[in-house]
Design a protein around this nucleic acid. Structure first.
Length: 215
DNA sequence: GACCAGGCACATC
DNA sequence: GATGTGCATGGT
């Protein structure tokens, strides 16, 4: 399997090139985006983030002080705005109550414990926690999302009812543990899912995974 | 107008 | 542990 996952990565990278993830200026902006993008098109997330930026609110202390009501209005374009405002507030409460609002301080915690702490926050599930760990905090954790699952299923690399953890282990046990690799690999799977895997069912004729690696 | 998007919590069986 | 449902906007 390890060779297979390496091969897939090489095919994707040679086909699409680097994806430059995560599109954000600061770790805090990554975290906000990770919560806002739950089951939501990224274009809608950008509108919400730009609303926050425009009002100079894209900073943890400012959002911590902002009312939930006002926050939900600003993030309206993402959909689920009430629940997402609550989830952002839940994360901010965690950040300020446990780490005085200082993201550098949470970097001192070992990755396994930090992941458990993130998962204990209401509104942060496995994908959001892992996105925060990998893309905001640069920890070598593989992110599994709906595209990843769909693509692996399509190519018969996992069984239909595989859990999040099983899929994550598949990558983490068969690839070298490397932030840059995990970053690019997940981004490439999302790119593939958006552009190819959904639009060409069931044969996926133009799927780059069905072609030879370019040399 | 239907369908989908870089999930999650909660209820129920 | 598996399955179903609510949350909601904007693009195709």
């Amino acid at each position: 399997m390890s060779g297979k996952l390496d091969l897939i990565y090489r095919k994707l990278y040679s086909h699409f090139g680097p994806q430059h993830w995560w599109p954000a200026d600061t770790p805090f902006e990554v975290i906000v985006g990770a919560i806002l993008t739950q089951n939501t098109n990224w274009l809608n997330v950008e509108k919400a983030i730009n609303n926050l930026r425009k009002h100079k609110l894209l900073e943890q202390r400012k959002l911590y002080r902002l009312s939930k009501k006002r926050l939900s209005t600003l993030i309206k374009p993402t959909g689920y705005f009430n629940i997402k405002a609550q989830r952002l507030k839940a994360f901010l409460n965690f950040l300020f109550k446990s780490y005085q609002g200082n993201i550098q301080k949470i970097l001192l915690i070992n990755t396994r414990d930090l992941r458990l702490q993130l998962l204990s926050i209401n509104g942060i599930g496995p994908e959001t926690a892992d996105s925060i760990l990998l893309y905001a905090l640069k920890k070598p954790v593989f992110v599994v999302d709906a595209y990843t699952r769909r693509i692996l299923l399509r190519h018969r690399l996992v069984k239909k009812n595989a859990s999040y953890g099983e899929i994550q282990n598949l990558f983490m046990q068969n690839l070298k543990s490397n932030v840059k690799l995990f970053n690019e690999y997940h981004a490439l799977l999302v790119r593939l899912g958006k552009e190819v895997c959904l639009k060409n069912k069931p044969k996926c004729d133009i799927c780059p995974l069905n072609s030879k690696v370019k040399t």
